[in-house]
Design a protein around this nucleic acid. Structure first.
Length: 574
RNA sequence: GCGUUCGUAGCUCAACUGGAUAGAGCGCCUGACUUCGGAUCAGGAGGUUGAGGGUUCAAAUCCUUCCGGGCGCACCA
């Protein structure tokens, strides 16, 4: 349990017990009552808003109520050295030396699990799901890393997480992809010019795939597209998935399940899902309304199968069949999601690119319909990545087949830096990715800055001939923290809160920000010895005070836990 | 037009699902290297949180009307 949970529970219990003395009629289950980190300008470790909340529902002056609660806490708990009432009625607590020591010891003792928010749910995270028509590009990287770190985070808390990739290996795009490979093969084998048009994939990788296929099928003439189609499809998909899997591997990502759309269709999962929804009357024969703003000249009214997604909050009902009565992409996706629902996860998460925002309502509607509102699907959108080099943006042009691929990125920048930078923004904000900054070894590069703090801590321990997990013993009689040490410890105590919020909100960027802040405090602490010789850590080869090692150890522990979740390496020396 | 998302310091962004005096980095100005690794640090200037209205003890955060950018918008995937 985190320090915040421990004290919120203690305070609640105490107030419940003393409810009459406090003349509180209504506790309302302590809804919205929290223990938080106070703003940094207050010299306190913890802060509680209980008197503001209870004051309001009991129509009492919050400051007066706070005084009473403060008195009761003093009389019943001896964890605090000081309690202050601040602002409109916050209770600010300063922990006693004994409880500070207990906390530090607890962190050091439970270094592997410190910060964990215990939970044992099952999650399915679908992410990347890049079309198998070509290698991954930079935008996919962001979603890939986001999903992977989310998985790490949820696993850290004790949940079971399945990482899944949906392969869209069906439909027109695959036809065009295979055709492109065919035409490239004709080009190589028979010197026929490859004439690009909008439906085809011109990229260089298509040529490579073509060459590989030629090598593996020496006797095949490739004189008839129809005849060669199945063979070409098999190999083309295989090789392009290999490209994608290599990129993922180089980013440090491994999915548990690759789920194929064409297998889904072959196994009639779509038919099953649709008839399931038809039984519930959510799928009917009907007519779609023409899109608004469209003049009806192009609009053909046609009877088709329709999913009534408006019953579940969508803006319009959605077609499940095309004009030729084959399934739409959405229908297939319903089949896929029914399969996920049937696999009985507690939570489903889809990580999507910004261009799929418009798809969210209908797919969440579908999941609600399939599961009778029992399964919750959370769609997280990763916004665009904008690349910069030499201060200038580069553009990606899909038409010319020129885009910056994950491989291009990995060739220049190591995976640690890519992972950290991609998470250095909230997922719903566009991200500027600067090739130059990321290669620098200074403060402008946050990955380096955080790694460097850990390296410095290791260097300190090396100088003392001690190991990082050396058994620190603190003595209550002469335990004393200076201002910066108290500040650092408060930051370290905040770690469980960061884990909790990041995982409940599914926002891993909070971890990168936090680690940067922690590293800043640490570097500042480290450098104080430059200003004032008395603040140096070591004298005559020995540590001056045991508290220093304790504080620094807790920093190392948290940095390590954080970077593990981010999947970023943490060298002991740089 | 509809939906969705964002708008916070000169620039790029945070802000603990409503909290206290809105915080970082870059850039700008001023300082600290006989170093426990200066690959760093200390200090300063910089804000009507796009605009107006509302909800309340408390709003960048919730509601509402505008303004402005991104993305999407039958039968593609």
């Amino acid at each position: 349990m985190s320090i915040f949970e421990i004290y919120i529970n203690k305070i609640k219990e105490l107030i419940k017990k003393k409810q009459k003395n406090l003349e509180l009629k209504n506790l309302n289950d302590f809804k919205n009552v929290t223990v938080e980190v106070p703003p940094s300008n207050f010299d306190s470790d913890l802060s509680c808003n209980v008197s503001l909340i209870l004051g309001k529902i009991n129509k009492k002056n919050p400051k007066e109520l706070a005084e009473k609660i403060k008195k009761i806490i003093y009389e019943n708990l001896n964890d605090f050295e000081n309690i202050e009432i601040a602002g409109p009625g916050f209770l600010n607590f300063k922990l006693s030396k004994a409880s500070l020591i207990a906390n530090i010891n607890g962190i050091i003792k439970n270094r592997e699990t410190y910060g964990r928010k215990n939970s044992n749910k099952t999650y399915n995270i679908e992410f990347v799901s890049a079309n198998p028509t070509g290698p991954m590009h930079v935008g996919h990287c962001r979603g890939a890393i986001f999903g992977d770190v989310l998985a790490n985070l949820l696993k850290f808390n004790g949940n079971k997480v399945t990482k899944e990739y949906y392969i869209n290996d069906y439909g027109n795009q695959i036809y065009n992809f295979v055709k492109s490979v065919f035409l490239r093969i004709r080009e190589i084998k028979y010197d026929e010019e490859f004439i690009n048009n909008e439906d085809l994939y011109p990229g260089e990788y298509i040529i490579l795939i073509g060459k590989k296929i030629i090598d593996e099928n020496k006797n095949e003439k490739f004189d008839n597209f129809k005849k060669s189609f199945e063979l070409l499809k098999k190999y083309s998909l295989k090789y392009s998935m290999e490209l994608i899997k290599t990129d993922l591997k180089n980013l440090g990502i491994k999915h548990d399940i690759f789920f194929s759309e064409s297998v889904l269709i072959k196994n009639k999962l779509v038919d099953k899902a649709v008839s399931h929804l038809r039984d519930k009357k959510f799928v009917v024969d009907g007519y779609l309304k023409p899109p608004k703003g469209e003049t009806d000249s192009n609009w053909k009214k046609q009877k088709r199968l329709i999913f009534k997604s408006t019953l579940f909050g969508d803006d319009t009902d959605r077609a499940l069949q095309k004009n030729d009565s084959s399934w739409t992409y959405f229908a297939n996706d319903i089949g896929y999601h029914m399969d996920k629902v049937n696999r009985k996860y507690d939570y489903l998460i889809n990580v999507l690119g910004a261009d799929h925002t418009g798809y969210i309502k209908r797919i969440t509607a579908a999941v609600s319909a399939i599961s009778d509102n029992k399964t919750n699907l959370d769609c997280k959108v990763c916004q665009l990545v904008k690349l910069f080099k030499n201060g200038k943006p580069f553009k990606m042009s899909k038409r010319a087949g020129e885009f910056i691929s994950a491989k291009d990125l990995l060739d220049e920048v190591d995976k640690d830096a890519i992972r950290f930078i991609m998470l250095n923004r909230s997922n719903d904000v566009e991200l500027d990715f600067d090739f130059d900054k990321i290669l620098e070894k200074n403060k402008e590069n946050p990955v380096f800055y955080v790694q460097y703090s850990f390296a410095r801590i290791n260097s300190l321990f090396r100088n003392l001939n001690k190991k990082l997990d050396y058994d620190i013993s603190l003595n209550i009689k002469n335990f004393n923290l200076n201002d910066i040490e108290a500040k650092i410890l408060r930051k370290v105590l905040e770690w469980p809160k960061i884990v909790e919020v990041s995982s409940t909100k599914l926002e891993p960027h909070r971890i990168t920000y936090y680690l940067y802040e922690l590293a800043t405090l640490f570097h500042s602490y480290w450098s104080m010895g430059n200003e004032d010789f008395n603040l140096k850590f070591i004298e005559n080869g020995k540590i001056k005070r045991e508290e220093i090692l304790a504080i620094v150890s807790t920093v190392a522990i948290v940095v390590k836990r954080g970077m593990n979740i981010l999947g970023v390496s943490l060298p002991e020396q740089m």
